[in-house]
Structures are given as C-alpha cells and as structure tokens.
Amino acid sequence: KRYRAVYDYSAADEDEVSFQDGDTIVNVQQIDDGWMYGTVERTGDTGMLPANYVEAI
C-alpha cells in the first residue's frame, strides 16, 4: 500500500521515521490503531510512523 504524508513528522524515537508533508510512504503495514510501518520513498528511511499523519493514495 502507498500513503501520502499530510503533515510533517519528526521521529521521536530511533525506530520511527521522519517525513514531510507530501512525501510518499511505501510498503506500509498497519501495526495497531495508531501506528504503521513503512518506507519514506524520498529518503529511503524505514520505520514506524503515526497513522493519523498519512492518507491512502
């Protein structure tokens, strides 16, 4: 699945990823209600991200 960031996010922990509004997130997997795991296409960084900061595309 592919998602697009709708807000900027700065990683708060080493297992999270930072991204900017408009970034595409690929290979996304749902972890639980609030978190997903995926790769930021622009940077190649992979990690956890907050589900409410992205939307499906």
Rank of each mutant, 00 (worst) to 15 (best):
T39H: 04
L49Q: 01
S10D: 12
W35Q: 04
I31H: 07
G34K: 15
Y53T: 08
I31S: 07
S18Y: 03
Y53M: 12
W35M: 06
N52V: 11
S18G: 06
D23K: 03
K1F: 10
R2E: 07
D23E: 04
T24M: 13
Y3G: 00
Y9L: 02
R4I: 09
N27Y: 08
M48E: 04
Y37H: 10
R42S: 06
T46H: 09
V28T: 07
D13H: 15
V40S: 01
E41V: 11
D13K: 15
G38T: 00
K1T: 12
Y37C: 11
Y7N: 12
D21V: 15
T39N: 03
Y53D: 01
R4D: 00
K1R: 12
F19V: 05
D13R: 15
V28R: 03
G34C: 15
N52G: 12
R42Q: 05
D21Y: 15
T39V: 07
S10I: 14
I57E: 09
V54G: 01
M48D: 03
V17K: 02
E41T: 07
T43F: 02
E16M: 08
I25C: 04
A51T: 10
V54Q: 00
N27Q: 09
V6I: 15
T24E: 10
W35A: 02
A12L: 13
Q29E: 11
Q30C: 14
G34E: 15
I31E: 06
A12F: 09
R42F: 04
S18E: 03
V26A: 08
A12Q: 15
V54T: 04
F19A: 01
Y53V: 07
S10T: 14
V6N: 08
E14P: 13
I25K: 01
E55V: 15
D21W: 15
D13N: 15
V54D: 01
R2C: 11
T43A: 02
N52C: 14
D8G: 12
W35L: 05
G22D: 04
V17M: 03
G44N: 07
D13C: 15
D23I: 02
L49E: 01
R4T: 07
V17G: 01
D23R: 03
G44L: 05
G44Q: 07
V54R: 00
T43Q: 01
D33L: 09
S18W: 03
A56W: 11
Y3A: 03
D33N: 11
D45I: 11
A12I: 12
D15A: 13
Q20R: 14
Y37E: 05
Y53W: 07
N27P: 02
I31K: 09
T39I: 06
A11M: 04
D23H: 02
E55P: 02
L49I: 14
D15Y: 14
T24H: 10
A12V: 12
Q20L: 14
D15W: 14
I25N: 01
R2W: 08
E16G: 10
Q20E: 09
W35D: 02
D8F: 08
M36R: 03
G34S: 14
D21N: 15
Q20Y: 13
R42N: 05
S18K: 01
V40M: 02
D32M: 13
T46C: 09
N27D: 11
D45E: 14
M36K: 04
G47H: 04
T46S: 12
Q30I: 14
P50E: 00
L49W: 04
I31C: 14
L49R: 01
A5N: 00
R2N: 08
I57Q: 08
A12H: 12
Y53E: 03
